[in-house]
């Protein structure tokens, strides 16, 4: 393989891996918007909570106290992060979102998500302190090489988990009763209610699923990001951009946009410089807003999610 081809292939692999990380974060955002027509500004903090849950369960609970191997401990910590995210989603919905939802005011829940974000950041700051934690996945240091091409076992794990999460979510939405009910609520909340669908339960379920996804994303991002109580903020702006580029509330669009942004980022680093990554991504965002405001996949609103 020529050096040029190897370089193109390598940066494509880097981009897909990066894109999968973004997709994992963005899926929860788009899910909540699709069903509730609401933007969740606290999503970044759910990611951070997931990262900390994974860190402590991997480095303390499973390995130190239960004597498991680093690899097993880390894989199990992904499930712990998922559970922590789900539990947090359940609590935040019960304490904040559910009481506000009944007041038929779109602004209050939006502002409440900002409040939840600040609350979670500061709670984590008190609990864990500001000094960065070193979260190393045992898979991050093991490199797989095919000639000039290389990638870490961690990146393979990220791609597999992302594929499973996407596949699982897609199947849930398309083939299960609850998934169909969720889509019904996203199409028309009032009519779905008249048909006997428990709207509040389904909205709570949406928040729990989105939060669980955020938690899981945190577990996979933990070994990549600098783990502090503000860690999630470093990816959330890009996740918002991806959701807009893909089409707010559109799952397929979010997946395509996430991978696309990851690949664009990798090639921007190669040919334009890493200093202009944000410029390129946000020019793309503005371009999409002007040319195709509905996003990459322009579906009818009622078919979203």
């Amino acid at each position: 393989m020529s050096d040029f081809l190897a370089l193109i292939l390598q940066q494509s692999i880097n981009g897909i891996y990066l894109g999968c990380l973004y997709v994992l974060v963005a899926l929860g955002l788009t899910l909540i918007y699709g069903v509730m027509n609401q933007i969740n500004f606290a999503h970044a903090d759910f990611v951070t909570v997931g990262a900390f849950a994974a860190f402590f369960s991997a480095t303390r609970l499973f390995t130190k106290w239960m004597g498991m191997s680093d690899g097993t401990g880390y894989v199990l910590s992904i499930f712990m992060a998922l559970a922590a995210g789900a539990l947090l989603g359940l609590l935040v919905n019960a304490a904040v979102f559910a009481p506000l939802r009944n007041r038929s005011d779109e602004l209050r829940p939006l502002i409440a998500t900002i409040g939840v974000s600040v609350l979670l950041e500061n709670a984590q700051l008190i609990l864990f302190g500001p000094i960065p934690f070193q979260f190393d996945s045992p898979f991050a240091q093991n490199t797989i090489r095919f000639g000039k091409i290389f990638f870490s076992e961690q990146s393979v794990l990220v791609v597999i988990v992302a594929a499973l999460a996407i596949g699982g979510l897609y199947s849930f939405m398309k083939f299960t009763f609850l998934g169909k009910a969720l889509r019904a609520v996203s199409q028309d909340r009032e009519t779905a209610g008249l048909m006997g669908i428990n709207e509040n339960f389904l909205i709570a379920l949406t928040i729990v699923i989105a939060s669980a996804l955020a938690g899981m994303a945190g577990a996979l991002l933990g070994p990549v990001i600098v783990l502090t109580p503000f860690a999630g903020a470093s990816v959330i702006v890009k996740a918002f951009a991806i959701v807009i580029i893909g089409g707010f509330g559109n799952m397929e669009g979010t997946i395509i946009a996430g991978i696309l942004v990851g690949i664009i980022e990798a090639f921007t680093v190669q040919y334009l410089g890493s200093g202009v990554i944000d410029l390129v991504v946000f020019v793309l965002l503005l371009f999409m807003l002007v040319v195709k405001p509905t996003g990459l996949i322009a579906e009818r609103r009622e078919e979203n999610v």
């Binding site: 891996y17 990066l18 702006v237 990798a266 190669q270 410089g273 890493s274 200093g275």
Partner: peptide
Amino acid sequence: RIDFAQDVNDFTPIATRIAA
């Protein structure tokens, strides 16, 4: 001369560029 923002997390694309 490769500069980057403070929120860059994954440096694999930068490392790939340098390797090339």
